[in-house]
């Protein structure tokens, strides 16, 4: 008889992917909070999860809802400005790298495209699962991801620009 794994093993197996998804959807500042809220909620519900469930899709679904909560809470806190410069996300310590550019480009995508790109390309979920999370059909999810990728390629020109370090 094989039962459900200890939750520790769930965190070890999926923690990094869910953190990447949270960062892609929310940016680095709010990602930690969304990750923490998501895993706490997941741990609460874990004993009731059907044994044959797709754990990663389930976790990304919970993280998606928590990311929406975090975004709403941030919007309530925020003081509205007349105009927000389009500069986007600041790059990491090693300077204004391509990483900063692509992260900024992703931040500027419409929410649905950003989510579709993150859940399909970062979390590796098939479009049927992405559609279950976002609502709508698998085809619509595929289109949202394709539109997002097309926009990313326009604002992140040249494709393979980075040289391997």
């Amino acid at each position: 008889m094989t039962g459900k794994q200890p939750f520790e093993a769930v965190v070890a197996a999926h923690g990094a992917t869910v953190l990447r998804v949270c960062r892609a959807v929310l940016g680095p500042a709010d990602a930690d909070d969304a990750w923490s809220e998501a895993f706490l909620a997941a741990m609460k519900a874990y004993p009731g999860l059907p044994p044959d469930a797709n754990v990663e899709a389930w976790l990304v679904t919970i993280a998606h809802r928590k990311a929406i909560d975090v975004t709403r809470a941030a919007a309530r806190r925020a003081v509205p400005f007349a105009e927000i410069p389009d500069a986007g996300v600041t790059a990491d310590d090693d300077g204004a790298s391509l990483d900063g550019d692509i992260a900024a480009a992703l931040t500027r995508l419409p929410a649905r495209q950003k989510q579709a790109v993150a859940y399909h390309y970062l979390a590796g979920l098939p479009y049927t699962d992405v559609a279950a999370i976002l609502g709508g059909t698998a085809d619509a999810a595929r289109r949202a991801a394709a539109d997002g990728i097309a926009k990313l390629r326009r604002s992140y020109p040249g494709g393979r620009v980075r040289s391997e370090r």
């Binding site: 923690g15 992917t17 953190l19 892609a24 993150a118 390309y121 393979r160």
Partner: peptide, 23 residues
């Protein structure tokens, strides 16, 4: 097209072991 971008995306949003340990 997308595979290359996906690799760059994964690099862009790394999850360092230390950060995961803290979380």
């Amino acid at each position: 097209l997308a595979g290359e971008l996906a690799r760059d995306l994964a690099r862009t949003f790394p999850a360092a072991p230390g950060e995961l340990g803290r979380l």
